[in-house]
């Protein structure tokens, strides 16, 4: 547990969008997928996932439909809308710019100034 990182505020939505972009998922599946793609390095409070999902549905970035899970259970599946796809692209680009900027700032050496 010791090497898990706390999520930065606002990044949960981005992670959910990314996870769902790889294929429709139910809530628990989203959790598993994020764990899988992040190399289990991120700590997510499980319950907090749902308010975020509902928020994204209301913003029209995700759409939800009831279906049947692998083990034949009724479950609600989330998939990305085209608006969600667009948002994911923008946010990803924005995130990369931010990371690059912060990395470059942190890598700065005294002689470069």
């Amino acid at each position: 547990m010791g090497n898990e990182a706390e999520l930065l505020p606002g990044t949960l939505d981005l992670l959910i969008l990314k996870a769902v972009s790889l294929g429709p998922l139910h809530g628990y599946g989203v959790l598993l997928r994020i764990g899988q793609i992040s190399g289990r390095a991120l700590l997510i409070e499980q319950g907090a996932l749902y308010p975020a999902l509902f928020r994204l549905v209301r913003q029209g970035l995700l759409k939800a439909s009831w279906g049947t899970s692998d083990n034949n259970r009724r479950a609600k599946f989330y998939e990305l809308t085209s608006k969600g796809r667009k948002r994911l692209r923008e946010e990803t680009a924005g995130w990369n710019r931010l990371v690059a900027a912060i990395a470059s700032a942190l890598a700065a050496q005294p002689q470069e100034i």
Binding site: G27, Y28, Y50, R74, A75, K76
Partner: peptide, 12 residues
């Protein structure tokens, strides 16, 4: 629905 969704998460 909300009730069921959360319960199913915990079950899974």
């Amino acid at each position: 629905d909300l009730e069921e969704e959360l319960r199913s998460h915990i079950q899974l």
